[in-house]
Design a protein around this nucleic acid. Structure first.
Lengths: 213, 213
DNA sequence: CTTCGAGTAGTCAAGTTTGATTAGTGGGGA
DNA sequence: TCCCCACTAATCAAACTTGACTACTCGAAG
């Protein structure tokens, strides 16, 4: 599962109709370039690719109103919306140790109903626990946990991450169950995109360690 | 930093001289295809690329002894060893939320001295703490942590992961300080590669959630 | 009035990743 | 003996990612 597709579909969907630069700006607003591979090239590539696959509909539009080359506007199709929700549900459920996928899902979770998000997150906890069980038993089949030398630290790390992820997910479940946030069908949603011409307060926001490389 | 380079350099180095399939098998033995992008294509690509860049020396070798196309054997060069240690040190120090990098570093940490590993891990803890500080202050500049709506959960997740990572690293430091494992210059090292003809007990080992996709 | 910088919008070549496919060898069963 | 399968070993096209680059407009400073 490529996180860029979820991100781009979600951004286009929130706008109703959006051109590449708008999507690019939203992702920057969300800090997505910090915690995922949301480079301009990847975004435009994803837009074109998904337009080719019928997930988005491309409108060729006249030269831009504000400088630069003519821009193409995209609208999400029914097939695209379907794919969006599929990816979103998967991102909240699956435990695959890629933190960017969960981050993206978190940003869009309010597009689902409160009840469904709770169900998906509970499923996530179960998935983590199952995975933990499998790893711990598979890697100590003979019963001697010391046989792996320092390689055992790998398993240790995975298990620790899994436990920490499960604990965090349980905390989130509690907060949502306690009435936090506004979900689909519960009234005025939290606006997470930039309007046309609205400035981006986080354009040069948090420095992320990955930037140092 | 691409984890595949560290993994391939480390595997070739442990063998002294290795062909692609051997490297591929080691990575599978380590479960690397589970927690990193260690697909065959990536491995062969990395070998060729690094040979072109002078990090590995390629020996054209006669048709394989056991079926299949003729195989090329690789040996690590001085430049390659230098790069290997650079990547290894970086993988243990840097906090970039990509768990595969740390996993790889962990697998090879015993190629360094106990004192150096301790120093690198302490640096890692400091890096995590610094990052945490930056994120928490940057994302609550006005002082109102509730202004972000559900997007605040993103920060929450990052901070939780950072704390959990720091805690785990401290535990590892304690274990190493307590005398665990055998490091460079401390006698017979733990053998982490498959010998020629040795069977791979984990060839179809742990099922990882990522497999489900 | 022209030059510079900042912002807008997107393209492109180079490199990397994916995983299906190719291709040779040896062994077991009909 | 012959065919099929499993294993060994590597290649390849297609897709994806990177981030530098192009190209255009507007406003302000010189």
């Amino acid at each position: 599962m490529s996180v860029i597709r979820l991100l781009v579909l979600g951004a286009v969907r929130q706008h109703g109709r959006a051109h590449g630069y708008q999507v690019r700006n939203d992702l920057e607003y969300w800090g997505a370039h910090e915690w995922s591979n949301a480079q301009p090239g990847s975004i435009y590539h994803a837009l074109k690719q998904m337009a080719k696959q019928g997930l988005l509909h491309a409108h060729e539009v006249a030269p831009s109103t504000a400088g630069g080359p003519p821009r193409t506007e995209y609208e999400i199709t029914d097939k695209g919306a379907e794919e969006y929700f599929r990816l979103l549900r998967e991102s909240l459920t699956a435990y695959d140790q890629k933190p960017d996928v969960l981050s993206a899902g978190l940003g869009f979770m309010v597009d689902l109903s409160r009840a469904e998000v709770l169900a998906l997150l509970r499923e996530r906890v179960t998935a983590i626990e199952t995975w933990r069980e499998t790893v711990t038993t598979s890697y100590t089949p003979g019963g001697d946990p010391g046989q792996f030398g320092h390689i055992g630290e790998l398993m240790n790390l995975w298990v620790h991450s899994a436990d920490s992820g499960a604990e965090w997910t349980r905390g989130l479940i509690d907060r949502i169950q306690g009435g936090a946030y506004v979900f689909a069908g519960e009234g005025e949603p939290f606006v997470g995109v930039l309007g046309e011409g609205e400035e981006n307060p986080y354009a040069t926001g948090v420095r992320h360690p990955r930037d140092d490389h």
